[in-house]
Design a protein around this nucleic acid. Structure first.
Lengths: 243, 243
DNA sequence: ATCAACCTAAATTTCGAAGATCTATTGACG
DNA sequence: CGTCAATAGATCTTCGAAATTTAGGTTGAT
C-alpha cells in the first residue's frame, strides 16, 4: 500500500481544498491507478476526513478530467488509453505552443531571468530515477516549474489554466510509463534548446522544439502503454480478496 | 425576481447534476448576475434541495470558471471585467479556430449534413429580442448548436470540452450585453459565410471568418460593458435593506 | 476622540445518519 | 441445466444539525 499523506500535511484553510490537492497529486503520480475505483469510505479513511469534503473534491477533479463519475455508481480514476493519450498530447502541443508564442511576445527581462533560473535549478537536479521505480519528486517539480516559466509571460490566465490542466493530465501518463520501465531519457539538452530559442525570441523554433519534445515523450509513453494493455483493463473490483 | 426553474424540470439522475445544470444556465444567462453572492441558504430555497447537492454543484462550476470561491467566505458568480473579456475572447478565437481547422480536416458527409441542418434551423429561427430584454432562448440554443456543428468533426474530445467551456463563459458576457441594450445584430450572413468556407474545405478562410465573427461580438459586448462600469461593481452585500 | 479587544450574529464548512440506487447472490421455475 | 425473479448487501446520494470561521458592532481604556 503506497504511503498516503494525510490532510495535516498541507496548510489549506479548508479540508475540501486539502483533499482536492492530495487527491490530484495521488492521481497524477498514479499512486491511485487509472480506472481504480474511488470508494467514499476508502477515501474517508485515507485522508482522515468526512464524506462531504471528499465528495466536493471529487466533483472538482471530475471537471479537471482526472476522475470520472457514473451516476449512482461512484467515482473512478480516469481511465487511460492510447486513443486518449493521443488526443491529449495533440491538444497539449497546440495549447503549449500557443502559450509559448504569446509568452515570447510579451515576456520582459523579469520573464527571462525567471526562465534562466528555472532552467538552472532543473539542470542541477539530476534526474535520478529512484530505487522504488517512482520518479524523483524534486526533479518532477523542477521540470514542471521550467515548463511553467516558459509560458509564464503569456498574459492569458485562461490559457494558462487550460495548459496547466493538460500538463497534469499528461503527466499522469508519464508517471504510468515510469512505473513500468525505469529508463529516464536525457532531455536536458532539449530543455536548453527550447529555452535558447525562447530567449532569442524565435517563436517558431521554440514552438517547434516544444512540439517535438512533447511528441518524443508521447512516443515513449505510448510504447510502454501498449506493453501493459491496449485498452484499459477492466480492473475487476474485488471486495477484499476472493473468498 | 427572475423565475427560477426547479429541479423537477430536469430529468437528471441525481440532484447535484440537476442543480449544476440549472445553476450553469442561470449564470450563463445572467439570471444570476456577475459578482452576485451565492448564499447556500438562498440556493437551497431557489432549487428546493439540500445543501450537499448545491455545494457539490458549485464546486464543479468553480472548475468551469463560472463561480469563484473565497475560502470560508462563500461563493460568488464570477466577476466580469474588460480585461477578463479580452483574455477570454482572444483565447476562444484560437481554440475555436483550431477546432474548426481539425473539423474541416476530418469531417465527412455526415458532418456536412449536420452542419447544413443546423444552419437551416438557425436561419429560420428569427432572432427576436423578446420584450423583456432577454434574448430568445430558442435562437440561443440554435446558435450554439450551429457553432457546435461546425467543430463537431474535430476528433478531439479534449479540445471540444475546452471549447464548450469557453463558449459558455463568453456567452455570459453576451447575455449581459443584451440585457443593457436590445439591438441584436444581424449575423445570419456571417454564419452562412463561415459555413460555406467550411464546406469548401477552405480552413484558412473559415478560421479567419470565425475569428472576425467572435471579434465583432467582443467589440459590441465590450462597448456595452464599458457603459455599465469599467470594473465590476463591489456590489455591496446588504442584509435585508438598510435599517 | 481613537484604537483595540471582545462579543454577538450570520454564514460557511464539516460530520454522521437516513434514504435511494445498484450489484451480487440465492432459490424457484421452465 | 439454464433463465429469471426476488432478496440481501454494499455504495452512493442526500439531508439536517453541530462545529468553525468570518464580519460587524459595542465597550472600555488611552
Amino acid at each position: 500500500m503506497p504511503p498516503a499523506a494525510t490532510v495535516d500535511d498541507l496548510t489549506e484553510p479548508t479540508l475540501n481544498a486539502s483533499v482536492c490537492n492530495l487527491l490530484r497529486a495521488d492521481i497524477v503520480a498514479c499512486r491511485l491507478m487509472p480506472n481504480e475505483r474511488l470508494r467514499l469510505e476508502a477515501l474517508r479513511e485515507r485522508y482522515g476526513v468526512g464524506g462531504s469534503p471528499v465528495r466536493e473534491a471529487l466533483m472538482r477533479l471530475q471537471g479537471e478530467g482526472l476522475v470520472e463519475l457514473e451516476q449512482h455508481k461512484g467515482f473512478r480514476v480516469s481511465a487511460v488509453s492510447r486513443e486518449r493519450l493521443l488526443d491529449l498530447m495533440r491538444t497539449r502541443i497546440e495549447i503549449e505552443g500557443l502559450a509559448l508564442r504569446w509568452s515570447i511576445e510579451h515576456g520582459g527581462v523579469e520573464w527571462e531571468a525567471d526562465l534562466l533560473g528555472a532552467f538552472h535549478r532543473l539542470a542541477n537536479r539530476h534526474k535520478t530515477a529512484s530505487h522504488d521505480g517512482t520518479i524523483d519528486a524534486d526533479w518532477s517539480r523542477e521540470h514542471r516549474a521550467f515548463h511553467t516559466a516558459l509560458v509564464a509571460a503569456c498574459g492569458s490566465p485562461t490559457l494558462l489554466g487550460i495548459r496547466e490542466n493538460l500538463f497534469d493530465r499528461t503527466t499522469r501518463y508519464v508517471a504510468l510509463s515510469i512505473l513500468s520501465r525505469t529508463t529516464p531519457r536525457n532531455d536536458a539538452a532539449e530543455h536548453e534548446q527550447i529555452m535558447r530559442a525562447a530567449l532569442n525570441r524565435d517563436a517558431a523554433r521554440a514552438v517547434a522544439l516544444t512540439g517535438e519534445h512533447i511528441e518524443r515523450t508521447m512516443a515513449r509513453v505510448m510504447k510502454s502503454l501498449g506493453e501493459r494493455s491496449a485498452e484499459t483493463p477492466p480492473q475487476r473490483a474485488n471486495g477484499r480478496g476472493a473468498r
